[in-house]
Design a protein around this nucleic acid. Structure first.
Lengths: 341, 341
DNA sequence: AATCATTTTCAAACCGCTTTGAATGGCTCC
DNA sequence: GGAGCCATTCAAAGCGGTTTGAAAATGATT
């Protein structure tokens, strides 16, 4: 069943039927009713492909997932971010297009997205320092929103980010207040913007108390369980070992905990851990009582916000770069305790 | 730059240009060269929307992600499955469309996908016993491949699955061989087909040795860390506590380990654990030496296979229901040991 | 009743490609 | 030199909608 056929059945022109269904004012209310009823009756749904060609809009948003060619890691927060964004897209009639792309030809993909007109806008994931994709997207004139920010980029652009610096600063202060002085930072790879900011927050807090960050107890690694485990063992091997650690992700922290506990240290008593908790749906930080003390910020909510912002940009509801900084809350769990001798 | 314009520049008809670029035989090789060169020069990329309307193919595959309305969990294996499937799609010029849908109106989404012609086929995720979506998709006549199977469905359909029953049977046998007799099963929700099959494998292995499964040491829960943790505590509270456990996922097992170790039991010595390892990229089971003894099967590879199969079905390269059963391998890690008094 | 403004409907062009069926031109062959 | 045959090329008709500009119907005004 297509428009023409439906029009014929109604003894109306396609024009009128189209207008009736799309809520244009220049159509008689009685007619509109009749059309709507027929559309329901014959289960008419306008063909997406035709709409897209006719209107020139893709009614779709692209998410390009760079697949790190070396280690092939899919960002674990990705699924939840998508879930949040997806909600918003469905509500607004947009499709979500995913391209999994080896990160060495991401540029080509963006260019094609543009020239083939497959999407109306994109979400940029996992920005790095001076990320080259930002100027590229600006040049291509594709509406986009960055999940995160890119230190060193001077061009204005739209983004949704968590205040990572502030979060880690507070986490560090919290540990300092508990009496800890040797606090390890077990961070993600620091060419990732968020990791960089987290380190800054950590360093700022230390400096503010007249302490200096010790590179020996700072690691920057892939945020996997095993990397966390290795980091923990590394820390334990030091003669001046840390009494607390701030860990960039829940998964990594599970490895850290495994390392510590394997050596007989009890987390929350012998050693304190604060994590950053993205509130991943399959990796809740406990139900009622949080397992880990954490800086918490819902990545799903970030997905919703980013999608919202992007749609506003695409439809022209807003213009010019939009910015949204979400604050993380510090929640107290069972993994931290006062410094004991 | 579009086809008409390019044709004008070349002083050829759109027909010829189109044919030249699409490799049709009835075009002079010299002309084809000239066209190809011009296309490169002017960076011409055919408009996707137009191609889709003209050919009637969507050149896109849909993945409908049911969002469990009650608990809002995004399946953690999802990201890696997508990554695998995405590779195949890109290689074949297909787009991947994601719909995140509250699971109570999944049916509506499939019907729309069909009537609006947004996709050429779909992948069905997380099938359940007698999953109603299978007859629905058959009725709608959309090509589809199920990731998993649906016990109780009599209609033939295409699927890619892991031999879950066999995997868990072998895991159980392995523990039995180590002398364990009270082996817990910490499973996913058993309306999920894979969970059901895993339990069967477990029960079969026990029965084969003249043992009967004890419901007191079998739990079926959401596969989260906390659920695993609770399950472990529950087991420890029994007077006849298990000496080994088979756990349905890595994440869940991390909770189980936390529970055991919190109560002073050392995994691999005081209690044995076997997990199922989907080889999630961000959750490797150790690097060289596996942390957990595991039944292992790459979900990313499953994604690749499923996508491949679906494209074959869409293009008509194969017809009729296709089936692919992947075997899991049993790998020995550090989490299992012989039964000790 | 004629005029004019307003509401409602329609025919046709268009979006950018594919594809059918016909036309053109060169060659071979008798 | 005309018929027949390829090899190339092209005009035009889709695909299924939206949108422009004009026509028809209605109502108000004089």
């Amino acid at each position: 069943m297509n428009l023409k056929e439906l029009a014929r059945k109604l003894d109306l022109s396609p024009t009128t039927v189209s207008r009736a269904l799309n809520g244009y004012p220049e159509v008689n209310e009685a007619t509109r009713e009749r059309v709507a009823a027929a559309a329901r009756r014959y289960n008419y749904k306008p063909n997406t492909r035709a709409i897209r060609l006719a209107t020139g809009r893709a009614m779709a948003v692209g998410h390009v997932i760079p697949l790190a060619t070396r280690h092939e890691i899919v960002n674990p927060v990705f699924a939840d971010f998508i879930a949040g964004a997806g909600e918003v897209y469905s509500r607004n009639g947009y499709d979500m297009l995913l391209s999994v792309v080896p990160d060495d030809n991401e540029e080509r993909v963006y260019r094609e997205l543009k020239s083939r007109g497959t999407v109306d806008g994109v979400i940029l994931h996992a920005p790095r320092m001076e990320d080259p994709r930002i100027p590229l997207l600006v040049e291509l004139d594709i509406p986009f929103v960055v999940h995160g920010r890119a230190t060193g980029t001077t061009l204005p652009y739209s983004w949704v980010d968590v205040n990572n610096r502030r979060a880690f600063q507070r986490a560090t202060e919290f540990l300092l207040d508990l009496g800890h002085r040797r606090i390890a930072l077990i961070n993600g790879l620091e060419f990732m913007d968020f990791a960089l900011r987290r380190r800054r927050g950590y360093e700022d807090a230390l400096t503010a108390r007249g302490l200096t960050a010790d590179p020996a107890i700072m690691v920057s690694e892939e945020m996997t369980e095993t990397a966390g485990y290795r980091a923990a063992l590394h820390m334990l091997a030091l003669d001046q070992r840390p009494t607390a650690a701030i860990v960039s992700s829940m998964i990594m922290a599970m490895g850290v905990r495994r390392g510590f506990e394997e050596r007989g240290l009890r987390v929350g008593r012998d050693v304190s851990i604060i994590i950053h908790d993205d509130e991943l749906s399959y990796l809740r930080n406990g139900d009622d009582v949080p397992i880990f003390t954490a800086t918490r910020s819902s990545v799903r909510e970030a997905g919703r916000q980013a999608a919202d912002m992007l749609i506003s940009l695409i439809t022209g509801k807003v213009t010019g770069p939009q910015e949204l900084l979400l604050e993380a809350e510090l929640i107290i769990g069972q993994s931290t305790g006062p410094f004991t001798g």
